[in-house]
Simulated scan of single mutants.
Amino acid sequence: MEFDGEFELEDVPPDQAWVVLSDPIAVRDALKGCQYITPMDDDFEWDSYEPVEDVETLPEADPEVVAGRAFKEGVTYAALMQVGVGSVKPKFETSVSIDERDGENFEMVATGSGSASGSSFSMESGMIIHPSEDGEGSRIEWWTDADVSGRIAQLGGRVINPVANKIVNNFFTAIESEMSDVEETESGVTDRIRGMF
């Protein structure tokens, strides 16, 4: 299944959008149903991992802390995500690898897979952040190519597509709110963080 689209962020320049979308905690907080996103290694155990609660994001967080936890190319992350599709609400144990991360052109590509109670998926996904036509904000172009199997796949595209679109729209709306909070703080915070990546 293929999903793609664009999302406009008014008054949020690409460099600022990139910094917030590079923070796993900000992404987790904006992604409804996501319990955590954390780097994983060979010893990672889904059942025993305890996510840290109440982690600060920008503008309250220390810029060095945000830069230190930013997504890194070549690193694999564990994400626990609950998605409701029709009457099915599985929790997906998902591993996501950051395959490409280009901070100059604001582009990121990731691959991943996940499974939960009789359903599984694999996907390749990417985004690129462009300046908006008016030069004041950002236009985020995103795409996902997913292979879904099991109980969720049996529901078909007519059920899955609206759910996927709702998740994406809710995510970008929440991210825009987070970015607006950063916009109102002292200038130069996102520039300083980008310099630390």
Rank of each mutant, 00 (worst) to 15 (best):
E2H: 15
F3W: 06
L9Y: 04
E10T: 10
D11A: 15
D15R: 12
W18E: 02
V20N: 03
V20L: 12
A26D: 03
V27C: 05
V27N: 02
R28A: 13
K32Q: 11
I37S: 06
T38G: 01
P39Q: 01
D41G: 13
D42L: 07
D43P: 00
Y49E: 06
P51T: 11
V52W: 05
E53I: 13
V55S: 07
V55L: 13
L58P: 07
E60P: 01
A61F: 02
A67T: 06
G68A: 13
A70F: 05
A79V: 12
G84N: 07
K89G: 06
P90I: 00
V96W: 03
V96K: 00
I98E: 04
E100W: 03
R101M: 14
G103F: 07
A116H: 05
G118H: 04
S120T: 06
S120F: 09
F121L: 01
S125E: 14
M127Y: 15
I129V: 14
P131Y: 08
E133W: 10
E136P: 00
A146H: 09
S149R: 11
R151C: 00
A153K: 03
L155H: 03
G156F: 04
R158C: 10
N161F: 14
N161L: 11
V163Q: 08
V168K: 05
S177L: 12
E183D: 14
T185M: 10
E186S: 13
G188Y: 05
R194A: 15
R194M: 15
